[in-house]
Design a protein around this nucleic acid. Structure first.
Lengths: 190, 190
DNA sequence: GGCATTTTGGACCGCACAGTCCAATCCACG
DNA sequence: CGTGGATTGGACTGTGCGGTCCAAAATGCC
């Protein structure tokens, strides 16, 4: 891929963000290139110009964008889980975020839908979870040096993913609220 | 819908089960009517004969079938969580089951993919979760009469769903193992 | 056995949608 | 300015797939 002029880069960006939003709102299965074209005021040729391998190529960029978003949304807390107060601020931020987005959930769209077919997307997802896991495990170590940090991080992330999945499936936020709260609680009492 | 002769009922059943298996293996998005036709040695007209409203109609039957399966797999333990030994047997059964099916997961296919578009399928799913929740809450009450049974059941089911989702996404069983084990553990120490 | 109904086969239709192509325009740089 | 590459518009193509249709075979019923 040759150099991209500022204008080109902006167009590419507009496509990725527009597509990401559509996919979040309607699910990957219900979003066609024409929808993306319409929502981003671009033309077919632009999509294929910036994503030579077509839709799969673009979905890869969307996945990377969304994976970044999932972690970015949790900052600055996620990188600094060094006190119980920070842990609680993080938990509240996560819950508030998911309560707000409700079913438009980048995490669920990524994990449960985008990653299914394409191994490349799968790689992005596992990478995202690895980074997430590392942050949480670091946090565990700083408040509970004696605990099994890997195990605790696995439990906590599992609770969030379960909560997000149930939120999308049943529109009920309690699975996330209770699951995450209890996971942190059990860490405190370890 | 008029009466169905035994032969007709058998064909209908064959279609539902064949479709369910294909969907479990390849995901709803990657299964077409022709695949189902081929896998069940039926013809297009049979599918539309037994499911007049077409694919959506058939997916509804598949969803009901799979929802039944998810709960049936957990029996006889799920209906009789009256001692810690039963709880542990149930936990082991659930983990073994998911470890065996790995990514071919009826629960995830239902929750994260089938239910997205069709409100009728969504109803089946919420009904399934309601039944599941009731069983688990009953179990909690019988071993921990003092605990908040609704809250505990929510936590436990959330952990399983999270574990199943992560199993599909990353092929890692530990999210389920650890999540479910710790959720039950925290119930014991409540 | 004969009539009605259900069941089955498979050709056919139409559309949605990813992907192609080429000509028109914009822009950087000499 | 003028030239070449980047960018854009949009018509067009091919096809995969859900859905329709009708006629033939099997089955149930009296």
């Amino acid at each position: 891929m040759r150099a991209l002029t500022p204008k080109g880069a902006a167009t590419r960006q507009r496509i990725v963000e527009g597509a990401a939003k559509l996919i979040r709102d309607h699910g990957p299965a219900n979003v066609g290139l024409d929808d993306i074209r319409a929502a981003t005021t671009t033309s077919k040729s632009q999509i294929f110009h910036y994503f030579p391998d077509g839709k799969a190529d673009m979905l890869l960029a969307v996945a990377a964008h969304e994976a970044e978003l999932v972690l970015a949304e949790q900052e600055p807390y996620l990188s600094d889980l060094t006190s119980w107060a920070q842990w609680e601020a993080w938990r509240d931020r996560v819950i508030a975020r998911y309560a707000a987005q409700r079913r438009r959930c980048p995490l669920s769209a990524l994990t449960a839908q985008l990653g299914l077919a394409d191994p490349a997307v799968e790689g992005i997802i596992t990478g995202m979870y690895a980074r997430w896991h590392r942050h949480v495990a670091d946090g565990v170590r700083s408040v509970r040096p004696d605990a099994d940090a890997e195990r605790a991080a696995t439990q906590i992330i599992g609770a969030i993913v379960g909560g997000a999945t149930m939120l999308v499936a049943t529109d009920d936020i309690r699975y996330l609220e209770i699951g995450l709260t209890e996971a942190i609680e059990s860490l405190k009492n370890a």
